[in-house]
């Protein structure tokens, strides 16, 4: 892990502080650089001066990239889109923590006021067998889509639904379903898990649908098929470290894993297949 040529980049501090004199942060970034899938990677060191504390973490990387491009270098590739913490595109590891130090916060919502001047930040991609690195901080999380395709739905064709209020759902159940359905599919849970397990992601979807009367007829299939798909993708087993819960930007609860275990056990017994 050799440090490549250090680059000093001027970060644009905003003049919004008291009397316009707010001092920006000085930071050292060690960023994972990798050209392509399977290619060797290494950390590259960059120094940033005068970084505004009102910036988001991704805006700080924007500033770094502007500088790199102007110097004729390759900018750091990272995924992002909504920058509001809901699309699930962004995510990488900062100083060993998926999505960085702030609880229940994606990196796009993480602001530089969470850091101190003089800090060194080690930035690397989510690492897991099932999430191959594609370039720099970009990983392939399509395994999640394949798990959902295996059963993360209620089978109801368009046009065949009864009146919405014909299905009464107690408020508490609806709230519970929502809490689980709030998952944004960012994959931090997998990156944070020492085993690279996807149990929290799968548990959230299974729990969301198990809490509702809709789709009960396929409840067993759902649990069995999603777990089978998860195993096939190369995610590891759960050994209850609950690092996934600690890293989840949406506060998805660990009880979803317990529920997945119950759903899977019940379904296995009923189907007699395991």
């Amino acid at each position: 892990m050799s440090a490549a040529s250090p680059t000093a980049v001027q970060g644009a501090a905003s003049p919004t502080g008291a009397a316009g004199t707010k001092q920006g942060l000085k930071l050292v970034l060690k960023v994972w650089r990798q050209g392509a899938r399977g290619a060797p990677g290494q950390f590259e060191t960059h120094e940033l001066q005068n970084v505004s504390t009102d910036m988001s973490f991704l805006e700080m990387l924007d500033v770094l990239n502007e500088g790199l491009i102007r110097e004729g270098k390759d900018p750091v590739a990272f995924e992002h889109d909504c920058r509001e913490g809901i699309c699930g595109s962004c995510g990488f590891v900062i100083n060993g923590q998926a999505h960085g130090p702030q609880k229940e916060t994606t990196v796009c919502q993480l602001h530089m006021r969470s850091f101190r001047s003089g800090e060194t930040l080690v930035i690397e991609p989510f690492r897991a067998t099932a999430f191959p690195i594609l370039k720099d901080l970009v990983v392939d999380r399509s395994a999640f889509d394949r798990i959902v395709a295996a059963g993360g739905y209620v089978s109801v064709n368009t046009g065949s639904a009864p009146d919405a209020n014909a299905i009464l759902i107690p408020k508490d159940n609806a709230e519970r379903a929502f809490d689980a359905a709030a998952c944004i599919g960012c994959g931090a849970c997998v990156a944070a898990c020492p085993n690279g397990s996807a149990m929290l992601f799968v548990g959230a979807k299974v729990s969301h649908l198990a809490a509702l009367p809709q789709g009960q007829s396929e409840r067993d299939h759902r649990a069995l098929d999603m777990v089978a798909a998860m195993d096939k993708e190369g995610f590891g087993d759960c050994s209850n470290h609950l690092e996934c819960v600690a890293s989840c930007p949406k506060g998805i609860a660990g009880t979803n894993i317990a529920q997945l275990n119950r759903e899977f056990a019940k379904a296995s017994l009923r189907s007699g297949s395991r």
Binding site: G159, S160, P162, D163, I167, A177, A181, H208, L209, L212
Partner: peptide
Amino acid sequence: IDQCVAQGVP
């Protein structure tokens, strides 16, 4: 709304 509720939208 009918369709979305049937899909399990909470």
